[in-house]
Amino acid sequence: MSAIEVKNVTVVYGSGTPFEKKALDNVSIDFGSDRVVGIIGHTGSGKSTLAMLLNGLGKPTEGTVLLDGEDIWARPKEISKVRFKVGLVFQYPEYQLFEDSVYKDIAFGPKNMGMEGEALDKAVRDAASFCGLDDETLEKSPFELSGGQRRRTAIAGVAAMSPSVLVLDEPAAGLDPAGREEIIGGLLEMRKRQGSTMLIISHSMEDIAKYSDYIVVLDKGRVHMQGKPEEIFKDAERLFEASLDLPQVTKLFVELCKRALAENTDVYTVEYGIKKLTAMLEARKKS
């Protein structure tokens, strides 16, 4: 149960050269604990830079990253401990696999943490099952798997370290709908059981709306909006400013409202949308 927070963080790349670029500009976000936070933003809005800050792979030019109220850079030599607490899954993580079996690859992270014997075996098998990998796959070489299975292996490799904060950078990019559902669903279940915090970075509004308890919208290195999903999607205009869009199902309800067919637009997931639509149709039938 770790709470992670960034305070007044600024990151400047290539300072002093003509290529100087402010990737993050005075960003303060309290990600809280035991919840799913969605981070959304247009390309180049600083999402990935933010992710690298959280586990100490990147260092803020200014400001602090607080893990349980402590500055993670207070003792730079112990930064690897922070990396064990804050797991980070990169974009397209399937390219980081290197061992000769899936099992060994998933065990790489936990082993680095000093886990061994039964605890290691349990961590690996738990993470694998949550990510939808069966025992047979565990013995295979990661290079003979399909792209989706490789992605699962890579995500399981980080999940096996049972971090108290798990940051996923575009976990579902390039996967088919069933695959993304399965991977994220499994991780959510794992998160619930461990009570950890999960940060999902994505530019798919649908995914963010579906899974998040809290949403942060980034635009050009600044926090554009942050709040509960209903607060965010209420203000469609502001979302458009950040070149983002509403989830499709919400758009549908906005249009229905315009035609006086629905009363409100607080619909962000397809399931809820279907429920609402059926209720509306039933009500019509009766009247």
């Binding site: 792979l57 990396r83 992270g109 370290m161």
Partner: peptide
Amino acid sequence: DKIMSAQKARGAD
């Protein structure tokens, strides 16, 4: 650079 970061995130020293 990317792969190094990814392995560091998994605790590679």
